[in-house]
């Protein structure tokens, strides 16, 4: 029963969604709206579970004084502090989300900075990964390497100074060979999605229900 009901909901829901795509009638639209109305509700409740999980794990860590337990405070305090500052803390005491407020300040000067820093690490990691991995080991690898160099130079103004052909070749690589390869992978991915969806709708693939579906 624990497996049958979810499988049936998926099958009926999946078939109805396929059918409604071809049926413009009001009844079909209402069924679709009915389904989509459920989505935010499910998301909202799942978020409660998510926050519950995070809180449970970190309070366990603090209680057990597990390794690096101090960091758990760095998770829990902002997790509950930020919503309080945004929605409960009185506006007269710099609460609320509008600037100027503690929430706005923390968002702009802590969260934005930290996230931008994380993304900036990409530049460092790309350099390190490119140094280690880009080798002209074979003919194909050499083509890849040369294309990478041309596209990289073509994307920046210095490429323009080295010669007009560089950005033009770079753009040509992006517009044609890149597009062809991308489209080929997209087609494969598209059919993969179709097959996976059919397997799930018709209960062939049940691993998502837990375990190996046996």
């Amino acid at each position: 029963m624990k497996r049958t009901v979810p499988l049936m909901i998926v099958m009926v829901g999946g078939i109805l969604m396929i059918l409604q795509y071809f049926i413009p009638h009001q009844i079909s639209q209402t069924v679709f709206a009915y389904y989509t109305d459920w989505t935010p509700i499910i998301v909202a409740f799942a978020l409660v579970l998510g926050v519950g999980s995070l809180t449970r794990i970190h309070s366990h860590k603090i209680r057990r004084k597990a390794k690096n337990w101090q960091y758990s405070y760095a998770v829990l305090i902002p997790l509950f502090g930020m919503p309080v500052l945004a929605h409960i803390w009185p506006v007269s005491l710099s609460g609320g989300m509008e600037s100027p407020s503690i929430f706005h300040f923390t968002f702009m000067h802590v969260q934005v900075s930290i996230q931008a820093t994380m993304f900036s690490l990409l530049a460092f990691y790309i350099a390190s990964a490119a140094f280690r991995a880009f080798r002209a080991k074979s003919a194909l690898a050499t083509v890849l390497l040369l294309s990478a160099v041309v596209v990289m130079l073509g994307q920046v103004p210095i490429g323009e100074l080295l010669g007009r052909w560089l950005p033009e070749t770079g753009l040509w690589i992006l517009r044609y060979p890149n597009l062809a390869a991308k489209r080929a992978i997209m087609l494969g991915v598209g059919f993969g999605m179709l097959a996976t969806n059919l397997k799930i709708i018709f209960g062939v693939e049940r691993n998502w229900l837990g375990g190996t579906g046996k």
């Binding site: 499910i42 998301v43 799942a46 978020l47 409660v48 579970l49 998510g50 926050v51 999980s53 691993n207 998502w208 229900l209 837990g210 375990g211």
Partner: peptide, 13 residues
């Protein structure tokens, strides 16, 4: 959060 609930169930099972 939804993936989390499903993943938890998958691993438990």
């Amino acid at each position: 959060p939804i993936v989390f609930t499903v993943a938890e169930e998958v691993v438990k099972q």
